[in-house]
Every structure is written in C-alpha cells, then in structure tokens.
Design a protein around this nucleic acid. Sequence first.
DNA 1: TTCCGCCTCGCTGTTTTGGGGGAGTTGAAA
DNA 2: TTTCAACTCCCCCAAAACAGCGAGGCGGAA
Lengths: 242, 242
Amino acid sequence: MGFEAAQPKLDMVLRRLEQSDALEALQDFITELRDAFGVNHLVYHWVNGNGDQYGCGTYDPAWVQRYLDQGYLRIDPVVLGCFQRFHPVDWKQLDWSSKAARAFQKEAIAYGVGNQGYSIPIRGPNGQFALFTVSHSCDDEAWAEFCVSSRRDLILVAHFFNQKALEFEPGRLPEQGHALSPREVDAMTLLAVGYSRAQAAKALEISEHTLRVYIESARFKLGALNTTHAVARALSRGLIVV
Amino acid sequence: MGFEAAQPKLDMVLRRLEQSDALEALQDFITELRDAFGVNHLVYHWVNGNGDQYGCGTYDPAWVQRYLDQGYLRIDPVVLGCFQRFHPVDWKQLDWSSKAARAFQKEAIAYGVGNQGYSIPIRGPNGQFALFTVSHSCDDEAWAEFCVSSRRDLILVAHFFNQKALEFEPGRLPEQGHALSPREVDAMTLLAVGYSRAQAAKALEISEHTLRVYIESARFKLGALNTTHAVARALSRGLIVV
DNA sequence: TTCCGCCTCGCTGTTTTGGGGGAGTTGAAA
DNA sequence: TTTCAACTCCCCCAAAACAGCGAGGCGGAA
C-alpha cells in the first residue's frame, strides 16, 4: 500500500539527517542542503516563549550577531509575518511598509542575505515556534518558479530538520510537567479576553476569592510575576487560546 | 535547481487538492486518499480554542456523533497526546494507561476504528490545532512498515489538507487595523514579560506616566479593556513576540 | 487508607492600575 | 505652512489587583 518512495536524492539526505546524532552535524547538513537546492542561504531559526533562540544556517555570522545584538527578532517582518500565518510565505507577501522594516531589509541585504526569501513556519506544543528559511538573490520570476517547484521538498526538510533540532534540545521542553487545571485555564482565558477579576468570577459563578486562588496558582505554575505575565505565558505556550 | 519532482501519483492528488474550491470536495479527497494509501480510515479533525470542531473523514458517522455527544475530545488519548508533541505519533506510543482511555479505545474499535493508528499534529497561529489521522486494522509489524514508508507522504498530505481546510474556514479574519508605535511595542513587550509599570518605565528610561500613556494608547488601538487584555491581543495578533 | 491536587469560600491589609485633568517637544506628511 | 502622530513630562484619586493568613470537601493515585 502507499505511494511510491520519495525521490532518491531528497530521500537520501533526509535519511542521513534522521540518523545523525549530534547537534553540530546540523550545520553541515544545512550547508549541504543549501547546495542541493542551489540557493544562497538556508537558515533554521528556533524561538520559544522564554525568548531563547537557537539558529543554524549559512548566513554571515556577523549578520547573526548583529541580529541578536539589536534584538531584530522583534522587528523582523519575516518573523512577525510568519508568526501570524500557517503556510509557508514568500517574503514579498510580507509587510515591509514600515520604515524600520525597510531599514532592516536594506541592512540584511548588505550583509549578504538574498533579496528573495521563502520561509516556513513550524509550530510545536507549548508555543514552540521555528522558522525554516531559504534565501536567494535573483529576479522575481525565477524565484516564484523555484518556490513552486521546491515547496514540498522544503516543507519536508523543514519538518525533519525541526524534529532533529528538538531532539538535541532536551532542555527545551521542560516545564510542561505542570499544565494548568481546567479552572485555571478558565481563569486565564477570561482574563485574556479583558474580564476583570470580578467579572470573571461572576462568569464562572464562583467567588472572586476562589478565582484569585486560580490566578495565583496559575501564576505559580507558569513562573509568572503577575497576572499579565501569566496570561502572556499561557498564550505563548498555547495553554489558552483567545 | 532543486530536487526532482515529487512522485507522480501523490503529486497529482496534491495538485487537485490545491485547486479544489469547495469544502465539500474535501470529503471526496479524503476517501480517495484513503484508497490510495490502502488503509481503513483517514480523518482530518480541526479544533480551535473556542471548542469549535470541524472534521471530515471516513469514520462511521455514528462514531463521530458518539464522539461529539460524549465530549470524547477531552479524554481521547490521541488528541491529548498529539497536543503535547511535535512529531507524528504511532498510537502505540501514546498513554492508554487510564481506565477511561482503554474504555474509549475499546468503544472506538467496536465502531470500526482500526486497532492501529498514526496521527500527525498540525498547528497554526492563534492556537489552531488539527489532527490528520490514518487508521487501519493489522498486526504491529505490518503497521510499523507502513508508517515508515508512508510517513513523508502523510506529512505532506496533512499539510496541504490543513491549508485547504483553513482556506474554507470563514472565522479567520486578519483585521490588522493600526499597528502599534515602537514605544507601544516596547511597553507591551515589557509588560508581557512580567514588568510592572514602574519597572518597565525604568527599563525604558522614561517616566512612569509616559509609559502609562503608551499603554493606554496601545489599549485603545487594540480595542482592549485593560492592560492584560491589550497584551493578550498584541500577542495573539503577533504584534509583539515574547 | 492516606495523601495530594483540585475546587470552594472567608478575612485584612498594601501596592498597583485606571481615568481624569493638563502641557511641551519633535519630525514627517499634507 | 499647517497639521498630526509620536514622544515626553506633571498632578490627583478611586478602583482594582496583589499578598498574606486562614478553612473545608471531594476524588483519584499510591
């Protein structure tokens, strides 16, 4: 049963990727994959709710350092755009209208990042979020053609690459041990949609004090400093949805 | 540049899937895909935070109804397990230890669900979560072989299927409106990581009152009722990254 | 059975936010 | 040039959230 086996070359690379057992090997793989795809850059970039980042790819290290130093994560239209989307996205579809975004793009290109790009958002439990990006310098037409023809391969590669990266990062999924109780989820959810404590308590038909206990309990479990922080963490980790 | 084209049969089905323009067509596709994979059942199941569900697949409608009526969503080990994982999972790897889980499994099999299963979790922005499941009745060895050989195809199919399903989902409106100013982003970001107004003001080296102006301004732009709500909305809309 | 997590409720304070007034500077767009 | 959005600062006061103390019942796991 099933379809025929995947095409040999991709298949081979994926198989080797799956069998690799060291984080360092990923850097080699990503270089190899870049050459296989015939593009300038291939980058895997991983973020979690605590602001931890891990990246590996073929960008100029000076650019990576610059990116981290300047906190470009928070203004990068690729990250911001992909964070709101489900499917892979061509950089041209993103919002580059702000001044900061254009300055960022100009600087990126000066550091050797391609003028074209295609990024695949990948999500895991607890708000894990990663980007798998391919970037190149060419005209729009050639790029569009590349995106269409390589999309499926890129999706698969992104998927397996992320899976491998997560394997090597055991400390990345620590505190899912204590999830929130149903009532705590209720409380966080109502607060996240703007209810005051009194309103939330009324909506849940419990005393305000009881509600407070849930909030404090959730805050403790989430390691949060206050209610706003707790709600933000619950959202980031996908424990509640608004 | 790039790898060779995907294998013809899967390629053809995916292409037709992408071109389909009606939600109803998905039901036909899933039946076709089930036959192509040569398994008993193929199911796509979509959930969002409001408890809305959409599913399509080849399960007995009586089982689907039973599942919904009984609220099995909350005890189904497949859903619970996949919600905590990133990669596709063989049902055997899940936790069936609780009494409720075993009763659930027994009932599912009685309704014609296979004794074997393989489920792929798919995530989108705003906590969107979907499951793409293939189920069959056979022994462990045959199933393991199928999973290995079909995994990549299943991942691709799951991805494109979910993309198509989201296309038909009306409740996903971008509604961007006005973005936040840089200072407002700063303010929201610091609040989201647990700073009090006083701390955030100090961190930004502005007076607490100025910070308050930003918070109120952001609250207004986001249509939020209070600070927590504003931070939650900024996070949900991807205006800030924490 | 014993324990532990969850759910429920009460009290008294202190600290933080929210809402209402203001006023002045830039820099960019119209 | 004017206008407008963004940024910066100040006052006061009521409302809300936070912090700490306590209590008991209920159901599942060890």
